[in-house]
């Protein structure tokens, strides 16, 4: 049996990958210029504080920043094993608490839009790919490609101009306040969701269209059609199935996007989700928060990829070779 060995190697590869990501997450923040102590002292006190070595050292020691990098890395690894992300420099709170607070804000935006775009995009892509030479379909395909090349944050700005400033239907960004009514939540959520959904739908439909065209040229398709199968029935049974493995890996990439790729949209809508929090952590040199959020996003992407790999392995015997 070759198959366990194959799986084992795959697993090993993912393990190395995760370790590499964890290491990079540790190193990059520390290589960035700028002293994290500035946010611990405050901008105006920092200058005096660095002239008071005793105080300065005491505080760097408190945050573990006086240790050699190797020791810091070891502590970081050990705490990761305990699933303990530690305290954020800038929030002064447990990082798991911060993530528990911010992650739902991102998911509420990205999960519905990802699901929506996968469903709508697949439907549109199948339709476009079928008899793709017709002019109206070609025009729609071109439109999809055009929409996909719009920067999401620009789309966001246009939406804000239209719906918030001119029509006054939605607020200019921000999360809804606590205890907001359902209407207010929908108002706050609608624009970011719309932007993400439009953009992702265009992307998914382009890909699905390509897959459909490719498969519809295969001999088995022509044979099936000649047997007189209905079109809808046919697309579902014969087109969707063979295109599932690539669709799954697309889903994996989309999941990664769901956690981090919404960063620019979050900034444009000043939506305090994960992306925005990571961006703040970069500015404030909040090493622990940066490490934790970055590692978490990467782990989600890696596991989504692993899952897609496993599923396509189960679905498609060809991928086993």
């Amino acid at each position: 049996m070759r198959f366990p060995l194959f799986l084992f190697r795959k697993f090993l590869r993912y393990l190395v990958l995760v370790f590499a990501i964890i290491t990079v997450n540790f190193l990059i923040p520390r290589l960035m210029p700028g002293d994290p102590m500035i946010f611990i002292f405050g901008e105006e006190v920092y200058g005096a504080a660095i002239r008071n070595p005793e105080l300065f050292e005491a505080l760097t020691a408190k945050y573990g920043l006086n240790l050699p990098l190797v020791d810091q890395f070891w502590i970081y690894l050990m705490s990761l094993f305990r699933a303990d992300f530690g305290y954020s420099f800038s929030y002064g709170r447990q990082i798991s608490e911060i993530i528990a607070e911010r992650l739902p804000l991102t998911l509420i935006m990205t999960v519905p839009s990802t699901v929506l775009s996968l469903v709508a995009g697949t439907a549109i892509g199948l339709t476009l790919g079928w008899e793709s030479d017709r002019l109206p379909k070609r025009l729609v395909s071109a439109a999809c490609v055009a929409v996909h090349s719009f920067p999401t944050y620009w789309l966001a700005m246009l939406m804000l101009l239209f719906f918030s400033l001119w029509l006054g239907w939605a607020p200019i960004g921000g999360a809804p306040p606590a205890g907001a009514s359902f209407v207010a939540i929908v108002q706050h959520l609608s624009l970011p969701l719309l932007v993400l959904a439009i953009f992702n739908t265009a992307y998914v439909s382009i890909i699905v269209r390509g897959l459909t065209i490719e498969i519809s040229e295969e001999p088995f398709v022509i044979a099936a059609l000649s047997k007189g199968l209905g079109k809808l029935n046919f697309s579902l049974r014969h087109l969707l199935k063979p295109s599932l493995p690539p669709l799954l890996s697309l889903f994996a990439i989309e999941m990664g996007f769901a956690f981090s790729g919404a960063l620019l949209v979050e900034i444009a809508f000043s939506w305090p989700g994960m992306g925005y929090t990571m961006w703040q952590a970069v500015i404030e040199r909040d090493y622990p928060l940066l490490q934790a959020s970055f590692t978490m996003v990467a782990l989600v992407v890696v596991s989504a990829n692993a899952l897609a790999d496993a599923l396509s392995y189960a679905l498609d015997p060809r991928s086993r070779s």
Binding site: I28, M32, P33, G261, F294, V301
Partner: peptide, 24 residues
């Protein structure tokens, strides 16, 4: 292949922001 995988899987935009902030 592993290196390629790493860059394929690692979330590009946050990494890019880190890199850009690091390089200036």
């Amino acid at each position: 292949g592993s290196i390629t995988d790493f860059f394929l899987v690692v979330p590009a935009l946050p990494l890019m922001i880190l890199l850009a902030a690091y390089l200036g």
